[in-house]
Amino acid sequence: MARYRCWMGIFSCFLLFNLVFLGQKSEFFGGSGGEHHGEIGLLLFIIPGFIASALSSKKRILYPLLGALYAVPFCLFIHHFLWLMPGDSFWQELAYVISAVFWCALGAMLCLFIRVVMHALQQLYQSERL
């Protein structure tokens, strides 16, 4: 069962990362299409990391990070070879995707932080009840 949860975390992050990336590129989430000007749309990459971390049983930061890293070549391939709009250079797109990986890992850490805080509050509440 733990092996299944490992792949579930990686696959969910891979899939959600690609969906957010393609949504950003197609201006579905309010992205600018081809130009990147410090958009707040990068914050949407927190969602795949958060969800993948919640779905993973162990290594809650590593599995979302692996899913995001596996998605990087796929995103770059889709953008440069199958996208019809001319965009930024390869290096600008690589920097954009790597910063998206950072935000995805931050989402995983946020999920872990919330989990630890909830556990500590639960322990505090149980100790006060006794």
Score class of each variant (00 low, 15 high):
Met1Phe: 13
Met1Ile: 13
Ala2Gly: 10
Arg3Val: 08
Arg3Glu: 07
Met8Glu: 11
Ile10Asp: 01
Phe11His: 08
Ser12Cys: 07
Leu15Asp: 08
Leu16Val: 02
Leu16Phe: 07
Leu16Tyr: 03
Phe17Tyr: 05
Phe17Asp: 02
Asn18His: 08
Leu19Pro: 01
Leu19Lys: 01
Leu19Phe: 05
Val20Pro: 03
Phe21Trp: 07
Phe21Met: 05
Lys25Cys: 07
Lys25Val: 09
Ser26Phe: 10
Glu27Arg: 12
Glu27Lys: 11
Phe28Gln: 07
Phe29Val: 11
Gly30Val: 04
Gly30Pro: 04
Gly33Asp: 00
Gly33Tyr: 00
Gly33Lys: 03
Gly34Cys: 11
Gly34Thr: 06
Gly34Gln: 10
Glu35Ser: 11
Glu35Pro: 10
Gly38Gln: 11
Gly38Pro: 09
Ile40Ala: 13
Gly41His: 12
Gly41Ile: 06
Gly41Trp: 04
Leu42Lys: 09
Leu44Val: 03
Leu44Tyr: 02
Phe45Ser: 01
Phe45Gln: 04
Gly49Ile: 04
Phe50Ala: 03
Phe50Cys: 01
Phe50Asn: 00
Phe50Ser: 00
Phe50Tyr: 00
Ile51His: 01
Ala52Ser: 09
Ser56Glu: 02
Ser57Thr: 15
Ser57Lys: 14
Arg60Met: 09
Arg60Lys: 10
Arg60Asp: 06
Arg60Cys: 06
Ile61Val: 08
Leu62Ser: 06
Tyr63Cys: 14
Pro64Val: 14
Pro64Ala: 13
Pro64Arg: 14
Leu65Ile: 14
Gly67Leu: 00
Tyr70Glu: 06
Tyr70Asn: 10
Ala71Met: 03
Ala71Gln: 01
Pro73Asp: 00
Pro73Gln: 00
Phe74Gly: 00
Cys75Asp: 04
Leu76Tyr: 05
Ile78Thr: 06
Ile78Val: 03
Trp83Gly: 02
Trp83Pro: 01
Leu84His: 05
Leu84Tyr: 09
Met85Glu: 12
Pro86Phe: 05
Ser89Val: 15
Ser89His: 12
Trp91Asn: 12
Trp91Gln: 08
Trp91Ala: 13
Gln92Asp: 11
Glu93Gly: 10
Glu93Phe: 14
Ala95Tyr: 08
Tyr96Phe: 14
Tyr96His: 11
Val97Leu: 10
Val97Glu: 13
Val97Ala: 14
Val97Trp: 15
Val97Gln: 10
Ile98Asp: 13
Ser99Met: 12
Val101Cys: 03
Val101Lys: 05
Trp103Met: 08
Trp103Cys: 07
Trp103Gln: 08
Gly107Ala: 01
Ala108Gly: 05
Leu110Phe: 04
Leu112Thr: 13
Leu112Phe: 07
Ile114Val: 07
Arg115Asp: 15
Arg115Leu: 15
Val116Glu: 15
Val117Lys: 09
Val117Cys: 09
Met118Asp: 07
Met118Gly: 10
His119Cys: 15
Ala120Glu: 15
Ala120Thr: 14
Leu121Lys: 11
Gln123Ile: 14
Tyr125Glu: 14
Tyr125Thr: 12
Tyr125Lys: 15
Gln126Glu: 11
Glu128Tyr: 11
Leu130Ile: 12
Leu130Asp: 13
Leu130Ala: 12
